[in-house]
Design a binder for these strands. Structure first.
Lengths: 210, 210
DNA sequence: TTAAACAGACCAACCAGTCGGTCTAATCAT
DNA sequence: ATGATTAGACCGACTGGTTGGTCTGTTTAA
């Protein structure tokens, strides 16, 4: 049976199991022996599908960041105004948490253990993601939708921080859904960076309350 | 010569060196051998001052969180209005980054490797810190300074995320000083959560521009 | 028959922590 | 003042257990 076949392959099982083990105990807190025992396979099975434990860590990183980047790009291309774009990006990104919570946890906690080309590849995609937000804010300042008396760079990092940090506390069983959280984040961000003119227009109400 | 003497003790040297090694390579990426070689001491010297590598990690965590907690408490006690309090807390916290950037990096990247009582002790202080912000926002909503149509919990996490994330990107050599960054953060947060009445009062201008 | 999928014993390297010993400087007895 | 005593600071070879990874062999499916 080839990779991507109609039955879950051992490869996928290993990723799935490792993900949750890494999330709980950290990359270094989990041994390959533990992984194969939990999966119900052997060292041979593991190393048939992965060249190293490092590669497994990379795959986990890559699946998440690739997905997030794709969603952000789509959100960016779907809308034309910076306000709508920023809103869509934030909401699409926060939604990723429902799907990839475990990936993200591992991503932010273990990314500095990635080695060589693995690290280079991931860092590049991270940069692209940040750049998307940065561009939107810059554009919004030019069109006058966003106030321009605030640093683009710092605003971007503030937004990224606010959203990224969610991995530390978000739980599916919490009393706020990821959609509600996303709405609040959009509210906070837009209130903070929209220009006074935009706020006075219906623009603000329209986008926030939707 | 006793600990805390007028010359930097070996203990302090070990902490200082480990800090920067951990920051760059992660706790698991640094061996005790590397530490003692960099310091210019020996295994014996290391284990004379620390019972384990774990304890060293704990000490690093503890010095930072204890300091941050103390500063937040002071900021909280110095002012009476929630707006001023929140402003002071954010600014005091962001200032900690200048002093303890390395500690904070290690803190957020390795805290889940702390074991047993070490972990319990740190988690407790983290909770206290979060609670301080939570209380301020709650109080602000009661006094009417902050708008009350926004979740206290999510607002708190948004603020914490925005500020905490700074450890990922802040550099002393960057073109924004930590003070400027703090001011922007305060601006963003207050714009986002002040009630419309507060904004219309001079309160807003007064506090932001100071 | 063949090639991929998997099993599991095995290994070399590594690493946190130990332990007997040395050095140094302060304290004390004479 | 000076030799004896002592305690803390520090040294570094060594160890016991662990870990990522290998290798040879077996099963399975086409």
């Amino acid at each position: 049976m080839k990779r991507g076949g109609f039955r879950t392959s051992l490869r996928d099982k290993i990723i799935h199991v490792s993900l949750h083990l890494f999330e709980e105990h950290g990359y270094h807190g989990v041994t390959v022996k533990q992984i194969v025992e939990t999966v119900g396979t052997s060292k041979g099975g593991f190393y048939h599908h992965f060249t190293s434990k490092d590669e497994l860590l990379f795959v986990i990183h890559d699946t998440f960041i690739t997905y997030a980047l794709e969603k952000a790009t789509i959100a960016n291309e779907t809308y034309t105004s910076p306000t709508l774009r920023l809103q869509a990006i934030i909401k699409s990104f926060i939604k990723v948490f429902d799907l990839y919570k475990a990936h993200i946890s591992v991503f932010y906690q273990e990314s500095n253990y990635l080695k060589g080309n693995y690290q280079v590849s991931i860092k590049c995609k991270r940069k692209q993601f940040k750049q998307i937000i940065l561009n939107v804010i810059e554009e919004g300042q030019h069109t006058g939708e966003f106030r321009d008396n605030i640093s683009i760079e710092i605003s971007t990092m503030a937004i990224l921080g606010m959203v990224n940090w969610t991995y530390k506390w978000y739980k599916k069983t919490g009393d706020k859904s990821i959609d509600e959280i996303g709405d609040i984040f959009v509210d906070i961000v837009l209130r903070a960076i929209l220009s006074n003119e935009s706020v006075n227009n219906n623009a603000y109400q329209k986008f926030i309350i939707q």
